[in-house]
Write a protein that binds this DNA or RNA. Structure first.
Length: 579
RNA sequence: GCCCAUGUAGUUCAGCGGCAGAACGCCACACUGGUAAUGUGGAGGUCCCGGGUUCGAAUCCCGGCAUGGGCUCCA
């Protein structure tokens, strides 16, 4: 959205705008204590400790005051000062003093008008450079992100060097709202969320069709790669989770239940179940790698405040698999997973994704040596494929390091989906082994991997990515047949029958409504193809095709249309074949 | 979990102390129609739940639940 080469300037502009915001708030609420006010990916914010949260009216007042400061064209003046001076200067700003204590190098401040902030900079020359800005929203935010700290009031805003850019940005925001998966999901009858089941979305008939198509596609590719599909129970004994380490590290996110005086846990992950299957028999090195896959339903007790549509839920279905292999096979297996992921993402239309490598967190199990080994395997796979990646120190799972894939949707927002996690500790905890060529027991390595991550989340991302216009292979209704009058009904039914014989999801709109109305409704439902059937078509045994993009092709032979759409569905094409 | 906002017909929303409203959808009737809304009529409500203030509460106050925007965590 913001061009790469301009980013530096925008960062400066936004940072400056956040100072203007703070100046305005300080003028209006002299008692407000300042938190921090950085530029972010899009825009800026500033945190304030105030007695009352800001209201919408407050925002308008602040905007007016900011405009005054901008009109004054106040210069941003940088100064380097001593620690003593700084402590004196910020003696009434407890949060600034806290920051000050952590600064090692030289202390710099920026001043515009009477407002002074502890700041590394850089800034634009003067406040007048902010030609257009808007305060977007307020939110509560903990000081330094920790709920142990007091909650401050955050104001988010955006600024641009021209009014046009601001308008374009606001328009984009509006568009984004139109593509919101919750809104579209409801409009299109894909899923629903009920008060009675917070965090547990319902999939409606149309959503279920999309779901099944996704699964069918994934299954086919996985089977070709040697994965074996299983189904494991959702509830298993507590002891299993104690042994796996989830009890120690993940208990606060798990659901528990009880039966026969025994404590049971609802699985938050599928690995222990798959491990039990692995352990059912002895394995030879010749069998490895063993790939156990499952569309596994997991429940995680997420905190109520974080739930969001399909993106963040309490029950979700992972396209999960566990690969049991030797250390030597590790790198190749990781490479295969990366390639499979790439293929799947491209089919769904995600060309652009980034990868991140996460290393050992504080709350973790296993030895330093195991962690190093596992991390190296992931890193060398990435290097061999010449993939750029970012390192997230300390962000790994408690049982091992991981690679995460972040896909970008049509609106350039990033979502974490695939994950590949190497695990040396679980095989040890469960005493897994295989018999090597030396006729001795050896410890296998385990890879946890998911490609869509959560089917629910991925479907949410897909809805937004496509803006509700699913490619034909995923569309719940692929064709709607629309007779113009009752005279054409019989022929329309014959067309419908033909389509259905070819397993095309077709519907007949035989209502006594006008054609424009039928078309309008099919458009709103984003049905890829509409077949208009009138006297002309009936006479020549053809159909008139209208696509949801508004392209009209008259008198197409039914057979021709059939072969086009069949090929389109078969190849899982992203674009409609009639353009 | 915490801060803020929101919760009214199937849907989108207006009303904000004094008779429960609109549009779309739904049902009925008429219209047999050519590429984004044919016309007329009708039915449809626990105003999220519980308590309080008031002669009177959808509206004001308190508590709860849910959803959304954030904080934190993560798929």
């Amino acid at each position: 959205m913001i061009p790469e080469e301009k980013k530096e300037y925008y960062k400066k502009l936004w940072h400056s705008a956040s100072h203007v915001l703070a100046s305005a708030v300080k003028e209006l609420w002299p008692d407000a204590k300042l938190g921090i006010g950085p530029p972010i990916k899009e825009g800026f914010y500033y945190d304030f400790d105030v007695k009352e949260p800001f209201t919408q009216q407050d925002l308008e007042r602040i905007e007016k005051k900011m405009q005054e400061i901008i009109d004054r064209k106040e210069r941003f003046i940088r100064k380097e000062i001593s620690r003593e001076e700084a402590e004196k200067l910020f003696k009434d700003e407890p949060y600034k003093l806290e920051l000050l204590r952590e600064i090692k190098g030289p202390i710099t401040i920026y001043q515009n008008g009477n407002f002074i902030d502890l700041c590394r900079g850089p800034h634009v020359d003067n406040t007048g450079e902010i030609k257009a800005f808007k305060l977007i929203r307020t939110a509560g935010a903990y000081w330094r992100g920790s709920e142990k700290n007091p909650m401050l009031q955050r104001i988010y805003g955006i600024a641009f060097p021209s009014k046009q850019e601001l308008d374009a940005y606001l328009k984009k925001l509006e568009e984004l709202g139109e593509r919101n998966h919750i809104k579209l999901g409801k409009q299109l009858g894909i899923f629903s969320i009920h008060e009675e089941a917070p965090g547990f979305p319902f999939f409606l008939p149309k959503g279920a069709i999309i779901w099944d198509e996704m699964i069918k596609f994934l299954k086919k590719l996985h089977i070709a790669e040697g994965y074996k599909f299983v189904r494991t129970p959702i509830i298993m004994s507590k002891e299993l989770w104690v042994r796996s380490g989830h009890w120690d590290h993940y208990r606060q996110n798990m659901y528990f239940t009880q039966a026969d005086d025994r404590m049971l846990a609802v699985k938050p992950m599928n690995c222990p179940g798959h491990i039990l299957i692995y352990k059912e028999k002895r394995h030879s090195y010749k069998e490895l790698p063993i790939k156990i896959a499952e569309f596994g339903i997991v429940h995680r007790l997420e905190r109520s405040g974080v739930l969001y549509g399909l993106i963040r839920v309490r029950k979700f279905t992972q396209d999960d698999a566990h690969i049991f292999c030797t250390e030597e096979q590790l790198k190749d297996e990781i490479i295969k997973i990366i390639k499979l992921t790439d293929k799947i993402y491209k089919t769904f239309g995600f060309e652009d994704y980034s990868m991140e490598l996460s290393t050992r967190p504080e709350d973790s199990m296993g030895t330093d040596e195991q962690w190093e080994h596992a991390t190296n395997a992931l890193e060398s796979a990435l290097k061999e494929l010449k993939i750029d990646y970012k390192i997230n120190e300390g962000e790994g799972a408690f049982y091992g390091p991981k690679i995460d894939f972040h896909i970008k949707d049509a609106l350039e927002r990033e979502w974490q989906c695939a994950t590949i996690q190497v695990d040396f500790s679980m095989p040890e905890k469960f005493d897994l082994y295989y018999i090597g060529p030396d006729d001795k027991k050896h410890r296998p390595v385990m890879i946890h991997r998911a490609i869509l991550g959560s089917i629910e989340r991925f479907m949410g991302v897909l809805i937004e990515h496509y803006g509700g216009m699913f490619p034909t292979w995923l569309s719940p209704v692929q064709v709607r047949v629309m007779p113009i009058t009752d005279r054409n009904l019989e022929y329309a039914k014959a067309v419908l029958e033909k389509l259905r014989e070819s397993d095309i999801r077709a519907e007949l709109d035989s209502r006594k409504e006008t054609l424009p109305k039928k078309i309008r409704e099919a458009q709103l439902e984003k049905i890829p193809y509409m077949l208009v059937i009138g006297d002309n078509e009936q006479k020549e045994g053809s159909v008139t095709v209208r696509t949801r993009k508004g392209v009209i092709k008259k008198s197409v032979k039914l057979e021709e249309f059939l072969s086009l759409i069949k090929e389109e569905i078969e190849s899982r094409a992203l674009e409609l074949s009639i353009k």
